[in-house]
């Protein structure tokens, strides 16, 4: 996640299945914890924590739903604007 920001990304989406369709049972809290850590780290550099999000479609497997949640996310990033402090 940090590498993406280091490379100049404006936002990072962690795209996963939803809890119902995930191949691995009961790992959501672990994924969330890792993502929260990354959010805290970028915050320390003054980058908005909201630039990292976990995206998962409501009931996985349907291509359009993935497209929709990704479109929503890029919309939110656009609202935040480009990172002004790029490499």
């Amino acid at each position: 996640m940090l590498k993406a920001f280091e490379s100049g990304a404006d936002g990072v989406a962690i795209v996963r299945c939803n809890d119902g369709t995930c191949k691995y049972r009961g790992i959501a809290h672990r994924v969330n914890a890792r993502v929260d850590r990354a959010r805290k780290l970028i915050s320390m550099l003054g980058i908005e924590a909201g630039r990292i999000e976990i995206l998962s479609p409501v009931s996985g497997g349907n291509g359009n739903q993935y497209a929709d949640v990704c479109a929503d996310f890029t919309g939110r990033i656009k609202q935040m604007g480009l990172r002004n402090n790029k490499l």
Binding site: K3, A4, E6, S7, G8, A9, K78, L82
Partner: peptide, 16 residues
């Protein structure tokens, strides 16, 4: 991690 730089670099930053 290794490929991110080239992926992100390939994105057109003026797309917005």
């Amino acid at each position: 991690q290794k490929t991110l730089a080239s992926i992100v670099g390939a994105v057109d930053s003026n797309r917005q």
